[in-house]
Structure formats: structure tokens, C-alpha cells
Design a protein around this nucleic acid. Structure first.
Length: 281
DNA sequence: CGCCAGGTGCGAA
DNA sequence: TTCGCACCTGGC
């Protein structure tokens, strides 16, 4: 039934996938997840330390899955270092055991997080899905229809009016400009890999619709830059409790000084903990 | 109705 | 440089 089996340790598929890094996934009745991965649709299920993966495209499937979910990186090393720096993190890190930061696809991530500004997850998902259904490649798999996220070329002649139909609201013009600039090569998404975090943030935030928060999400999730700070309302809630401040710059200073190059991971743990874990304890 | 949601751009001080 | 506010949209 399943095409490939991948042995993992220290991976929690459910927590990682529902942590807000990606918006387009569906949970199935058997607790597996179906989601697009660039050029294909995959269905993935975890049972203990085994992943079962099925896809409409078998080519390179194991490699694609291992890379996207960052399965060959041992986060215990980060976690150990973090606990050495701050032993009070131990409980929160234990709660977030198995959490991975994905290597998301750049164009999709940029568009999705521009859409995320002052928006809620269900609206973000709706807009990204609308974009995909209207402009992405249609995949028929197991008698069901799926849609890949459109590449920049597929969106090159989209109009502002058409974008507004995707329920983007005031973000329509920002997405429109981004699509245009990627297609005209004014923006080079690969070039960002070579920049340090500070330069990359300056580079991204010069474009409309990308502020510090959105730039940080893009750099953490699509460029694996672990020293960025996606400080949102959930992290602010957590930081308000811990340090009695919800000022983004002040939080940035505190976290940067404390956790250095693992700051992005700490922030992500805090976000995940505040949003998904705390209420269940 | 008002408020908020994984914020940002803008103009005013 | 900092500060306050409007903003598409949908759910409560």
C-alpha cells in the first residue's frame, strides 16, 4: 500500500505539521496527512518511529521527504545546547520533542506569509487554497483532485482584480507586486540563501507587505535561518508572562542575548507551546 | 455590534 | 525615530 517507509527518531509529524509553518495540509481519518510538496502530492503517516509515505510521484520521494521535514538533522544537539544555556527551558523543550523546522518552498512561503499579515489561519489557508485551485497544477490522484501551489510563472499574467477574488483584501497589491518582481527577476529568491540574516531581513522588508515578522517567518521556514525572530501575538503572550514585556524589540534583545544562534528555534518552541500545548496540559 | 486574527504602511508629532 | 491608526475578511 505505502510506497516507502522511513525510519525516524525524534520526529513528531503531527506537532510539526500543525505548527503553522505550512498552511496547505489535510488531516485524514486515519491520522495521516495529505499535502503538496512542490511538484507532488504526498500522504504521510507516522506510527511510532516509522513514517509511511505515499505519493503520486515516486521519483526521489524519500529524498524529498527527508529534506522537507529535515529528518536527517538531530535537534537533540540544539536542545541540549539550549538547556545548557537556560535550564528552565527543559520542560518546554520536552513538550516540543520531535518538533522540526521544515525546509519549505520559497515562493510559496513568501506569498503565504504576505497573506498571513493581520490574518487568521483559516483565512490564510482559504486564500492560499483558492490561489492553488485557480492557478496551480491539477493533480488527480486516487480519484481525488489536488492542486499544487502555482509557481511564479503560472501567476505572471494575473491581475490585481483576480487576486482580490482570492480574498486577499488589502494584501492583494502586496502579493501582486511580489509576483511581478519575482517574474521580472528584480527579486532573486536564491540570492537570499547567501545573505546573512540581517542583510536578508533588510532585503525582504524593502518590499511592501513584508515587515519584520513576515520576513522572519520566510527566513526561518524557507531558508533555515535559525537566528530570526518571528514574534507574533502568541509569542508576545508567552513573553509577557516570562519577562513582563510584549515589545517586539525588547523581546528580540532578551532572546538574542540569551539564546544566540538558536533564538529562532526557541521562539518557535514558545509559539508552539503557547498555541498548541499549554491548554492541553 | 465590536473585537481579533501568526502585521504592515502611512502620516503625524 | 517613534507612535497611532486604518486595513480586507470572516468568525465569535
Amino acid at each position: 500500500m505505502y510506497i516507502i517507509e522511513i525510519k525516524v527518531n525524534n520526529f513528531n509529524l503531527n506537532d510539526s505539521i500543525t505548527s503553522g509553518q505550512i498552511f496547505r495540509y489535510e488531516k485524514e481519518f486515519d491520522n495521516s496527512y495529505t499535502l503538496p510538496l512542490n511538484d507532488r502530492i504526498i500522504n504521510i503517516k507516522q506510527e511510532g518511529n516509522l513514517l509511511f509515505v505515499n505519493s503520486n510521484v515516486e521519483n526521489n520521494l524519500e529524498k524529498v521527504v527527508i529534506s522537507f521535514f529535515d529528518l536527517d538533522t538531530d535537534y537533540n544537539i540544539y536542545n541540549q545546547r539550549l538547556i545548557e544555556m537556560d535550564s528552565s527551558l527543559e520542560s518546554i523543550i520536552n513538550e516540543c520533542k520531535g518538533f522540526k523546522i521544515f525546509k519549505s518552498y520559497k515562493f510559496e512561503t513568501i506569498i503565504s506569509f504576505i497573506i498571513s499579515a493581520n490574518n487568521n489561519v483559516s483565512n490564510i489557508k482559504k486564500s492560499v487554497d483558492l490561489l492553488s485551485v485557480k492557478y496551480g497544477e491539477k493533480i488527480i490522484w486516487k480519484n481525488k483532485e489536488y492542486y499544487l501551489f502555482p509557481n511564479s510563472n503560472a501567476l505572471k499574467s494575473i491581475t490585481l482584480e483576480e487576486l482580490k477574488e482570492m480574498k486577499l483584501g488589502f494584501r492583494s497589491k502586496y502579493v501582486y507586486e511580489m509576483i511581478y518582481k519575482v517574474n521580472s527577476c528584480e527579486i532573486d529568491l536564491e540570492k537570499i540563501h547567501e545573505m546573512n540574516t540581517k542583510d536578508a531581513i533588510n532585503y525582504l522588508t524593502q518590499y511592501k507587505g513584508i515587515g519584520l515578522k513576515v520576513a522572519s517567518c520566510i527566513l526561518l521556514f524557507a531558508y533555515s535561518k535559525y537566528d530570526v525572530f518571528p514574534i507574533d501575538t502568541w509569542v508576545k503572550k508567552r513573553m509577557k508572562e516570562l519577562y513582563d514585556t510584549d515589545d517586539a524589540n525588547e523581546i528580540k534583545k532578551i532572546i538574542e542575548q540569551k539564546y544566540d544562534k538558536y533564538s529562532g528555534i526557541v521562539i518557535q518552541y514558545m509559539y508552539h507551546y503557547k498555541r498548541n500545548k499549554e491548554k492541553k496540559l
